[in-house]
Structure formats: C-alpha cells, structure tokens
Simulated assay, not measured.
Amino acid sequence: MRFFRSAAAAYGSRVIGVVLSGLLNDGAAGLEAVARCGGLALVQDPADAIADEMPRSALAAVAAGLPVPSARLGDVLSELVREPAGPRIPVPPDIRLEVDIAAGERVDSSILSRIADPAAITCPNCHGVLSTVRGSRPLRFRCQVGHALTADVVAKEQENAVDEALRVALRVVEERAELVSRMAADGRNSGRRAVAEMYEERATEYRNYAETIRRAVLLSMAPPAPQEDEGGQDGPG
C-alpha cells in the first residue's frame, strides 16, 4: 500500500499499478491512490485468481480498474509501457500527507485531523487510537504513530486477538474450577462440610463458565457458512 502511494505521488500518470491474487484488501487502497494520481490500474481477473479477495476488492475500490486474465498481463503491460503517459495531474493533498507520514514525518492529532477523524478503535500494532481516513476506498484507518490499515486488516487482527483472549480465558477458568474442586475435597476430608459445599458450588459455576467459553471458541473456529452468489463478478459492468 505504501509503495503504491509513494510511487503514485512521485510519478503520477507514469505509474501502472498491478494487483494480483491475494487476501484482504490493502493492495486495493494503494491501487486507488495510483488511479487518483492519474496512473493506470490493472487487476488480475478474479475468475482465474487462486485467492480472489484482493482483486475483487481492487475492482470495487477503483472504478477504472481493468481486469485482465493472468495469461494476458504480460502482453498488456508490454503494450501499455509503449504508450505515452497521460498528462500529469496535481497530487491530492491527502496522498501527499500520507506519503510524508510513511517517510517518517512528524504526525500528531492536529496533522492527522486534516485527513481523518478519530474512531473508537485501537491500532493492532501499537494500541494507539485509530482515525478513519475520510473518503477512502476501501475503508481505512491511520494511527498517530503512522500505521495505516484497511478495515479488513484491522478486523483480521482483532479476530486473532479475540481467539487468543478466549483461549486464555478458557485455560484460566478451567484451572480455577480444578483448584476449587480440590479445595472442596480438602474441606470434606477435614470435616468442614459448609466450606466443601461452598467450593463445590463455585466449581460448578466455573465449569459452566468454561463450557460457555469453549462453545465460543469452537464457533470461532468453525468455517463460515457458504453464501449464495449474488450475481458473481466478471469484471466492472
């Protein structure tokens, strides 16, 4: 994404951006910057991509994106580089600012507010506050440290964090159930019936909590249900 954006700012209409098979949609955000700076946007046809998520996102983000079968990409690029570049257009201020941020320029809330609005979401990399980049396609965020992420990337990172938190919680609750069960047994063996009953009740509660968390973990691991095709995508129409 940063490479596309910096190339677009530096070379404008002389840039040809190409998005190939891949997951998530960070490449789509970079390709959108190429198109806004006057460059050309090529996208591997999702129909012959091993992973079609990235090319589909790119075509959704860039209305002028040209889907090309992978077998034809080399020929198309060879033809395009022989054509004269289009007229140079001014680099949009938001793209210029993001290039400067990626290059290490100082960024704080006042600078970031020129292009983004604070969101109640934390950066998965530094845990700082994210801001929503205004008008971005696809939906995208930046933090004050300089990290830039699409919503899909943030969602994937959050999914991983939730899975890890659930597994930690399951382990802790199961250990707690085991501990109070042993304390209940110790109470019975020492003749402290009331104490034993109290710990047995707690052990039952913790086992119920653990079972609820275990179901949540299993649900998070289950593959998504297949969705009906809503018409397919053979290219922009």
Rank of each mutant, 00 (worst) to 15 (best):
D26Q: 15
D26L: 09
G27M: 14
A28T: 08
A29Y: 02
A29N: 06
A29Q: 05
G30H: 03
G30P: 04
L31P: 12
E32F: 12
A33Q: 05
R36Y: 05
R36C: 12
C37S: 01
G38W: 02
G38H: 07
G39W: 05
L40S: 13
L40T: 14
L40Y: 10
A41H: 10
A41K: 03
V43W: 01
V43A: 01
Q44Y: 07
D45A: 04
D45E: 05
D45V: 09
P46F: 04
A49R: 00
A49P: 11
I50L: 06
I50Q: 06
A51F: 07
A51C: 06
M54Q: 00
P55H: 14
P55G: 02
R56V: 04
A58D: 15
A60P: 15
A61C: 06
A61M: 09
A63L: 11
A63H: 06
A64I: 09
A64T: 13
G65E: 03
G65M: 00
L66W: 02
L66R: 03
L66V: 14
V68T: 02
P69D: 04
P69A: 10
P69H: 09
S70W: 05
S70R: 08
S70L: 00
A71H: 08
R72Y: 04
R72I: 06
R72K: 06
R72F: 00
L73D: 12
L73A: 08
G74D: 11
G74Q: 12
D75A: 07
D75S: 08
V76K: 05
L77C: 02
L77G: 10
L77M: 01
S78V: 09
S78E: 05
S78W: 11
E79Q: 04
E79N: 13
L80Q: 14
V81K: 00
V81I: 06
R82W: 07
E83L: 13
E83V: 02
P84V: 10
P84F: 14
P84W: 00
A85V: 03
A85L: 15
G86M: 05
G86T: 08
G86E: 02
G86K: 08
P87I: 11
P87H: 12
I89V: 12
I89M: 10
I89G: 15
V91K: 04
V91W: 00
P92F: 02
P93W: 01
I95E: 06
I95S: 09
R96L: 14
R96H: 09
R96C: 14
L97Q: 00
L97G: 05
E98K: 10
E98C: 10
E98V: 12
E98A: 13
A102D: 14
A103D: 14
A103E: 10
G104Q: 05
G104I: 02
G104P: 15
E105S: 14
E105A: 08
E105T: 13
V107C: 13
V107Q: 13
D108T: 01
D108F: 10
S109H: 15
S109N: 03
S109K: 15
S109V: 12
L112D: 02
S113F: 09
R114W: 03
D117C: 11
A119G: 10
A119F: 14
I121D: 09
I121F: 10
I121Q: 15
T122F: 09
